[in-house]
Design a protein around this nucleic acid. Structure first.
Lengths: 215, 215
DNA sequence: TAGATTGTTAATCGATTAACAATC
DNA sequence: TAGATTGTTAATCGATTAACAATC
């Protein structure tokens, strides 16, 4: 019952990783099937939304039974492209870059870290997570030679836009941007921004709101 | 023209940090006033949306003139609560915790880091960013004694829920959660989740979509 | 078969955009 | 004053929820 007509809204895509996460938990607990209703209670959303979301991609359930957890998780993984074997490089081997290199959940999602780069002579050559830090001068060539898919940018803001241009020139497919700046790149290169301070700011707002209602 | 009646939608709150960011850039370039129209072009949103968003909080502009950048940025800062002097602690002095401690944009947003905690004896006592790492056993007491507002959780998933409970018991106001798990806390304690692997997953989807349209 | 639960259509709700009178 | 641009109402669009026939 595949339906390729409807365009999938952005909000739906953003919810997929969360489904993936919860289904993974269920699998860990050896739960083999689940109805949209039980899952909705677990995740604190409506059952309707779950069914609607999944039906953008196909009918994965079975009437009277529900969804098979194992096969649903696989389907979502496929939809997200977790089995495409995407490769990543980290640019900027500072604290954050190092933390991300050691972040195992990246590998758990089917991404393969294949390179780490920095422009600091004192860091180049060091090993992080078994990968030797390379000079940033090699980036474009490395991306080209290895068909690298994702560049994770953890460089200072001042360097971010320039670096974005360079990885695009090298032929990168997507960018995960941790810098404060928003990047100007061609429309066919998706950028996912992780503005850490933004989260803290919305949290501050919500704390303030709670304080206000307290009174 | 303040309007306290309308409830502010979540999406609007989430956009405020972005406005704050762009207005900061304008200020750096010594631009003193801006119309919703120019700002909309800069930010790639509609002028209507900007005006609607701002009007949830009051009329900050002036007909025929536009908005004063300096005062608008201050207003948004106030709305978000950046001037409340919120204090933060980081729990988990691993790679990520250390990276965040050194992340200057936190301080730039009016947050004050007042403590770092870990349960690893070999780390306790070390200095990070001029702050001595304390034992996790002291957390509850420290939060209480210092009226700490925000706990930044960078602990392993297995420890996250337990730690969330403990900081809540200590009287924390909000949590910035970097662990994979979603936390179960009382409804008056806001939690902002930063699920790093989720961003990579939606990026994978978008890369895949680009590949598909390429063919 | 009877009960459960999906896939899907229709109804509702909320957010975005358009339009324009108010006004600086 | 005339031109520009806001604040705000109304129109549109899209996302969420409700409902239920299809079916396992």
């Amino acid at each position: 019952m595949e339906n390729n007509e409807r365009r999938v809204p952005e909000v739906v895509i953003k919810r997929l990783p969360r489904y993936y996460r919860y289904l993974g938990e269920l699998l860990k607990q050896d739960i083999q099937r689940i109805s949209s209703n039980s899952l909705s209670k677990l995740m604190n959303v409506t059952a309707s939304q779950i069914r609607q979301d999944l039906n953008y991609f196909g009918g994965f359930g079975q009437q009277g039974y529900g969804y098979n957890v194992r096969s649903l998780i696989d389907e979502i993984g496929n939809i997200l492209g977790l089995n495409d074997g995407d490769t990543t490089i980290i640019i900027g081997a500072g604290n954050l870059g190092r933390a991300l290199a050691n972040h195992n959940s990246f590998a758990n999602r089917g991404f393969k870290l294949v390179g780490i780069f920095d422009n600091d002579e004192s860091i180049i050559g060091a090993k992080i997570c078994g990968i030797t830090v390379m000079s940033d001068l090699e980036i474009e060539g490395f991306i080209r030679d290895n068909s690298v898919d994702v560049a994770i940018l953890t460089v200072p803001n001042s360097a971010a836009q320039d670096m974005a241009k360079r990885v695009v020139d090298g032929g990168i497919r997507g960018i995960l941007n941790f810098s404060y700046s928003e990047l100007d790149v061609p429309p066919n290169v998706p950028v996912e921004n992780v503005h850490l301070s933004d989260y803290l700011m919305t949290l501050a707002y919500r704390i303030k709101s709670e304080r206000d209602t307290e009174e």
